[in-house]
Design a protein around this nucleic acid. Sequence first.
DNA 1: GGACTTCTTCCCGGCGCAGGACAAAGTCGT
DNA 2: ACGACTTTGTCCTGCGCCGGGAAGAAGTCC
Lengths: 396, 396
Amino acid sequence: MRRMTARPANAHQARLLRLLRDEGPNSRAQLGDRVDLSRSRLAVEVDRLLETGLAVADGLAASRGGRRSHNIRLAPNLRFLGVDIGATSVDVAVTNAELEVLGHLTQPMDVREGPVPVFEQVLGMAAKLKASGLAEGFDGAGIGVPGPVRFPEGVPVAPPIMPGWDGFPVREALSQELGCPVMVDNDVNLMALGQMHAGAARSVDDYLCVKIGTGIGCGIVVGGKVHRGVTGSAGDIGHIQAVPDGRPCACGNRGCLEAHFSGAALAQDAVEAAQQGRSPQLAARLAEYGRLTAADVGAAAAAGDATCLDLIRDGGTRAGQVIAGLVSFFNPGLVVIGGGVTGLGHNLLAAIRTQVYRQSLPLATGNLPIVLDELGATAGVVGAARLISDHVFSPA
Amino acid sequence: MRRMTARPANAHQARLLRLLRDEGPNSRAQLGDRVDLSRSRLAVEVDRLLETGLAVADGLAASRGGRRSHNIRLAPNLRFLGVDIGATSVDVAVTNAELEVLGHLTQPMDVREGPVPVFEQVLGMAAKLKASGLAEGFDGAGIGVPGPVRFPEGVPVAPPIMPGWDGFPVREALSQELGCPVMVDNDVNLMALGQMHAGAARSVDDYLCVKIGTGIGCGIVVGGKVHRGVTGSAGDIGHIQAVPDGRPCACGNRGCLEAHFSGAALAQDAVEAAQQGRSPQLAARLAEYGRLTAADVGAAAAAGDATCLDLIRDGGTRAGQVIAGLVSFFNPGLVVIGGGVTGLGHNLLAAIRTQVYRQSLPLATGNLPIVLDELGATAGVVGAARLISDHVFSPA
DNA sequence: GGACTTCTTCCCGGCGCAGGACAAAGTCGT
DNA sequence: ACGACTTTGTCCTGCGCCGGGAAGAAGTCC
């Protein structure tokens, strides 16, 4: 069931495709304004894109004072699959060539079960999306996994929370199953790509994207490109020491950021606070559901629970200390905070901001926005689609 | 006394020039092996380089089994000026086009006197080098300053240790004086470029270069290019918190790495140790010279002074903690330790290594060399020459 | 309805560039 | 010493990229 997607023949065509992807339908004349090419050349390249079926004509554009131009848009039947595998759930979405999400499924899942059952589930979800008429086939798929990846090969390497995946040829296997090109990356990197396409980072070239969920990671974008490091483990900031001689961490050290502030750590703190009677609200929730999550802390804090506010503030301060260091080091133009704990909202953001603005030098923080992610689960799947679209929209 | 240096006309020529710069003289045939160009094209471009005088023919190369090829080398009369302005001294060197140092002067200087007297001194040193017959004029000059720089304009911005320089048009002024292109950068970035050209980083694309001198900074190289951050302050790691609620720092915070371990901090610790009678060796040196520097600590440690060994070990551990965080975050392929404290030698390196290998994750440290800088003062000036040569060897 | 603007197509000539043919210069074996 | 083979450098041809002019198509504005 292989689906042969045409590929751009040269860099000009690739450039045009990405422009159409990022800025939507555009008239030939507008395209001419954006890509430094002569009219004749542009006409030839656009015509070839139309011939190969990657783009289609789409009626007439509004006049700009003279003859009306023809609209060009990416082929409306192109489909990308975005998959975001988390620690405890999986997101699968279908997008069109402009990376608009046409359908999105979320299901609980345990990544520790290993690649084979997880992929069965993912393929089932993809089939479901296909069956609902959203796609006839896929022109590419991007996959995010919660651990480091040897990017060129698309293979997870030594992932701490998904040991069974070490060395599993994710890219190869999925490409076989889906019959289309596949790219694999760390989930945090994909979140960063999502921000680049649809989020706060659209006009920034150097930024950090901190994801605080079950674990903690950081997507690093340098000059508009994701920095993955020499072994694919760049951005693994969960095990930076935040508290000297602090809590023991699964990695064997003490005081790791992740041990003091993450979805897991926060839930544990919440349970302790409830059991010690420091927070009636949490105690009530614990009694009701039998367990607590970061969301419960956020809800209780929003309702005014002082203990929960303290937990959030302390955690934000810890995270802020580490982020302040990264800001001093990297001097980004933007920091985006995302992941499961985003539900803690502005209390968290305020604590992080305070710490960063206090600890980093004025030159680095002077014009540095620190914002919450606004895309939620969309960021990951859009980032995945963006990753593979960059690949498909590059010369063969 | 403007000297008009030819510039490459296209990217091919630029490529060839850089190849000749980095790998020395080469035969036409060898050049053909390294650049993906047809023989005809290559011949045309090389001939043009010869015509413009950027390169010269240099005899016949050894035979590779057939007709002997002609050697090509960069024009032997090209000269770059490398200037490295430190906090308390200045280095000026002349290099040829292959960035070999032909002459090198070092003089004490106080950067706080401001740009005008410092530049007078620099120009005097350059004139001295010229007068000794090393250069007739300069085809470009690179300048390193100990503070952040707005790179495109070549202007220092808000430099803490050189307040008088804020906004001074270094690039413009020196270009006027010297009559040649000038580029300005942070001294740490230039040290990193020096490692790339002549040091440990020749075959690495992503690495960090930590300079521990009067202050502490870090050069960041991503994909073979220096990362300067959005405001030019990337790598400013001296004010990352190393010790919660630690010593007060000039920046207004507490526990900054620089307050606990730098040339200045170490000298102060040494004086205290001497006065408190914890180190007879240091006391003797203090009595003799009236002051102490990091070098004294190194010498005493080498002679077996336990207190000094402790000072070095503690400092290395502090630095190692911060570097461990950077390694987790950035996942470099190499870390080079340089700057004034390199004199502390392997005791320092051992402490840093221990801490990094202990605190960072195995995937990031598995194949990570951490080495001492071997170039010393040469790194800065060669890096400066490399910076401007990259500029001169790019299409106009 | 006429003058002006904008957009598209067609066409020409220059340039970059690859690759083949050929000459020059050397090596190696006999 | 000589011929066969290899490597290197030069010349030439042809293709495709590409910019820009000219002309026509389509609209706007007065």
